[in-house]
Lab assay of single mutants.
Amino acid sequence: MASQGTKRSYEQMETDGERQNATEIRASVGKMIDGIGRFYIQMCTELKLSDYEGRLIQNSLTIERMVLSAFDERRNKYLEEHPSAGKDPKKTGGPIYKRVDRKWMRELVLYDKEEIRRIWRQANNGDDATAGLTHMMIWHSNLNDTTYQRTRALVRTGMDPRMCSLMQGSTLPRRSGAAGAAVKGVGTMVMELIRMIKRGINDRNFWRGENGRKTRSAYERMCNILKGKFQTAAQRAMMDQVRESRNPGNAEIEDLIFLARSALILRGSVAHKSCLPACVYGPAVASGYDFEKEGYSLVGIDPFKLLQNSQVYSLIRPNENPAHKSQLVWMACNSAAFEDLRVLSFIRGTKVSPRGKLSTRGVQIASNENMDAMESSTLELRSRYWAIRTRSGGNTNQQRASAGQISVQPAFSVQRNLPFDKPTIMAAFTGNTEGRTSDMRAEIIRMMEGAKPEEMSFQGRGVFELSDERAANPIVPSFDMSNEGSYFFGDNAEEYDN
């Protein structure tokens, strides 16, 4: 993207840094990872977990959730003011799984939030270390993106479920800051804005008074975040219109849905970061690795190297396929839920299948599930090659597409044709070009129609051997075009429920 120079890199967003050079960025990201790792080690000690239990991804998720809940100030305040039966607002906890007599047992633990905050700050040299908290939120978000298709949420806001490739980060909490905003897809931002506008339509006082002023500035800020994701002048001009509207209503909703559809071809720039579970960072720190000293990046080879040398386990339900569970977590670790499966298959070195073909449910185990038949197995999170994460949407291309997802959002900077089903997408653009945004709409449609099938995206960008740390010898991959490109292809993934 041309304006790259004016933006802070995501590592800076990730670490609240002012302008830093590459070495400083690597050190501050490393410091953040160190903090998460030290916190995780301490929690495993508190909970008396064995090494194996500490490497269980379900335990990692519970521990991450506990610290996120302990620092969720708004919710904590709300819980104190609106006490609900049987919930102690000062405590947080969740299921911890232990191996007892050759069987997995679930144990519900409860801790004072104050105590968890103390352990977290102690692991982070006394700081609140917001960057580390956001990092864990993005890992949870990436896992949700890989596990669930947001059909219901899309339909509720009037969008087409086939636009799911635009929904990265749709389950990120509001408090995820600049680093969170960077990884949100165009569809996620559109959905947040539509929800806001709908509230304004239904509630006369939404934009009024002292609160209304705050609401208005939040609305304009979200519009600017979305505008910054678009790469064409016409899309940005249309966002200006939406932002400046005196009284946002149905016309703005129409414009936003139009823009979301246009992003299936004229893709937005959305950041991709490899955020790993805390149970990967903990053992690495415990083994003596100093992330701050060595430096770390979320968008280069580092996460690949770390996963190459990590042992992570997962509980497996009786009829689940461990290899499929591994694929789910591998995609989440690489922030690749909406990437082209052919690119992923090449990088991973084994075939990556669409969601609907995987015999696996989510990673988390519900409290009512029976533990008797639970097994555990090693997650295979290694890769054959590594590639640089991208934040450009890439230019655009036609490809055989599917009944489910009709476009992709690249996660890796790797040369390819970008699949999208042009006739299906263009069919949504018939007729409606009147109104105050008509010239911009016409211009956007013209650009979409001009998108050429034979153009290559990320020209000359390749993948790298894991021994090639400096990215000196790019390998331009070859793809098996007979395979499906979309992950949520004609899909039956479970729906995400809060």
Rank of each mutant, 00 (worst) to 15 (best):
L256K: 01
V312S: 02
Q405S: 07
N395G: 10
K7V: 02
R8L: 09
A2G: 01
V352F: 05
S245W: 00
A260G: 12
L264E: 11
R243P: 01
E220W: 11
Q20R: 12
S345E: 09
V183A: 11
L61A: 03
L379S: 03
N370Y: 04
E469Q: 15
F488N: 03
T130E: 01
I96H: 04
F206Q: 13
V363C: 14
R208H: 02
F412E: 00
N211L: 15
T424E: 09
V408P: 02
L466A: 05
P477G: 00
D439C: 02
R65S: 11
I225G: 08
S28F: 07
E114P: 01
M159Q: 07
I197G: 09
I36E: 07
T146R: 01
I475L: 11
K103L: 11
M13A: 03
V285W: 05
V67L: 07
A373P: 13
M105H: 14
Q12H: 15
L133W: 04
Q149T: 06
E192D: 12
E18A: 13
D480H: 14
E210C: 13
R348M: 06
H140N: 11
Y111D: 06
I301Q: 11
G356N: 09
P303M: 11
K229I: 09
E465V: 07
S326K: 05
N321H: 09
G180L: 03
E254T: 10
T23R: 11
D372V: 11
R117Q: 15
S262V: 11
E494L: 03
N483S: 02
S274N: 12
I444E: 05
G431N: 05
T15S: 07
F346E: 09
G431D: 00
T151S: 14
S69T: 11
Y219D: 11
A153T: 12
E244Q: 07
Q122R: 08
L68I: 15
V299W: 11
G362P: 04
G288S: 11
G404A: 15
L61P: 02
R195I: 05
Y97E: 11
K325T: 09
A129F: 03
M238C: 08
G30K: 06
A411N: 00
R342I: 08
Q327L: 14
G212C: 08
K351W: 05
G177D: 05
M167P: 02
S287A: 08
R208S: 05
M371R: 00
K7C: 01
G228N: 12
R150S: 10
A129Q: 10
G5Y: 07
V343Y: 02
R199F: 03
M163R: 00
P453Q: 13
N498Q: 07
E254D: 12
Q231T: 14
S50L: 05
D421H: 15
E454H: 06
Q4R: 01
Y296K: 06
P318Y: 08
S345I: 11
T424R: 00
S359P: 04
F429G: 01
R246I: 01
F489V: 00
E369L: 08
D255F: 03
D145E: 12
V408H: 08
P248N: 03
D240G: 12
E114V: 00
P419W: 01
G132Q: 08
R361Y: 04
P89N: 03
D372R: 02
T390Q: 01
V329R: 03
E449S: 11
